[in-house]
Amino acid sequence: MLDAYFLKRVKLDQGLTNNTAAYRQLDPNSPVFLNKHGKPFPLLERPDKSGKIRYTCTSLSRLYSNLFSKAGIDGATAESGRRTFAVTLRRIGYDIPHIHTLLGNQNLKTTRRMLDSDPVDMGSIAAKAF
């Protein structure tokens, strides 16, 4: 789907560069996702419970939800996708600092909370005990 999206951006002349070495002529400084008018999605500032400012993009969140739905993954969000990515890496043996770097979280506690959300497979634990 990303490949098709990038081809469409080239066809629509959105976020391109004259640099012939750039991937598909896409400007590396351009946002990855653009709206139908070729403009970046707007970010909204929202304070969290502690008063810290968080940035959200409802349009992009809706886009992710639609992509997940088309892929047959109902109810998924960008955040649940990030959590699945983190948990999958941990299950196959990658360490927390590397997972943290890949996620780009500012705080290691955030990465640890994501990894703590991994549902434990009781059958697997029991099978290892016997």
Score class of each variant (00 low, 15 high):
Met1Lys: 09
Asp3Trp: 08
Asp3Gly: 06
Asp3Ala: 11
Tyr5Trp: 06
Phe6Thr: 03
Phe6Ala: 01
Lys8Val: 05
Arg9Thr: 03
Arg9Ala: 01
Val10Trp: 09
Lys11Arg: 13
Lys11Glu: 12
Asp13His: 13
Gln14Pro: 03
Gln14Val: 04
Gly15His: 01
Gly15Asp: 01
Thr17His: 04
Thr17Leu: 05
Asn19His: 02
Ala21Gln: 12
Ala21Glu: 15
Ala22Val: 02
Arg24Tyr: 08
Arg24Thr: 00
Gln25Leu: 13
Gln25Asp: 08
Val32Phe: 12
Val32Pro: 00
Phe33Gln: 01
Asn35Cys: 04
Asn35Arg: 03
Asn35His: 04
Asn35Gln: 03
Lys36Met: 10
Lys39Gly: 00
Lys39Trp: 09
Lys39His: 15
Glu45Arg: 15
Glu45Ile: 05
Arg46Gln: 14
Arg46Ser: 11
Arg46Cys: 10
Arg46Pro: 00
Asp48Asn: 14
Asp48Val: 08
Asp48Gln: 07
Asp48Glu: 08
Ser50Tyr: 12
Ser50Ile: 11
Ser50Gln: 12
Ser50Val: 11
Gly51Thr: 06
Ile53Cys: 06
Thr56Ser: 12
Cys57Gln: 06
Thr58Arg: 13
Ser59Tyr: 10
Leu60Glu: 01
Ser61Gln: 09
Arg62Pro: 00
Arg62Asp: 12
Leu63Glu: 01
Ser65Pro: 02
Ser65Gly: 13
Ser65His: 10
Asn66Gln: 11
Leu67His: 12
Phe68Trp: 10
Phe68Asp: 00
Phe68Cys: 09
Ala71Glu: 06
Gly72Val: 09
Asp74Phe: 14
Ala76Thr: 02
Ala78Asn: 04
Ser80Glu: 03
Ser80Ala: 08
Arg82Ile: 02
Thr84Gln: 05
Thr84Leu: 10
Thr84Ser: 10
Ala86Thr: 04
Ala86Arg: 00
Val87Arg: 09
Thr88Asn: 14
Thr88Arg: 14
Gly93Trp: 06
Gly93Asp: 03
Gly93Ala: 05
Tyr94His: 14
Pro97Asp: 02
Pro97Met: 06
His98Trp: 13
His98Glu: 15
His100Asp: 00
His100Leu: 05
Thr101His: 14
Thr101Cys: 08
Thr101Ser: 12
Leu102Asp: 01
Gly104Lys: 06
Gly104Gln: 05
Asn105Arg: 08
Asn105Phe: 07
Asn105Tyr: 11
Gln106His: 13
Gln106Val: 15
Asn107Tyr: 11
Asn107Cys: 12
Leu108Ser: 07
Lys109Thr: 13
Thr110Pro: 00
Arg112Asp: 05
Arg113Ser: 09
Met114Trp: 03
Met114Ser: 02
Met114Asn: 01
Asp116Thr: 07
Asp116Tyr: 11
Val120Leu: 15
Val120Tyr: 05
Ser124Leu: 15
Ile125Glu: 09
Ile125His: 09
Ile125Trp: 08
Ala127Pro: 03
Ala127Thr: 13
Lys128Phe: 11
Phe130Cys: 10
Phe130Lys: 15
Phe130Arg: 14
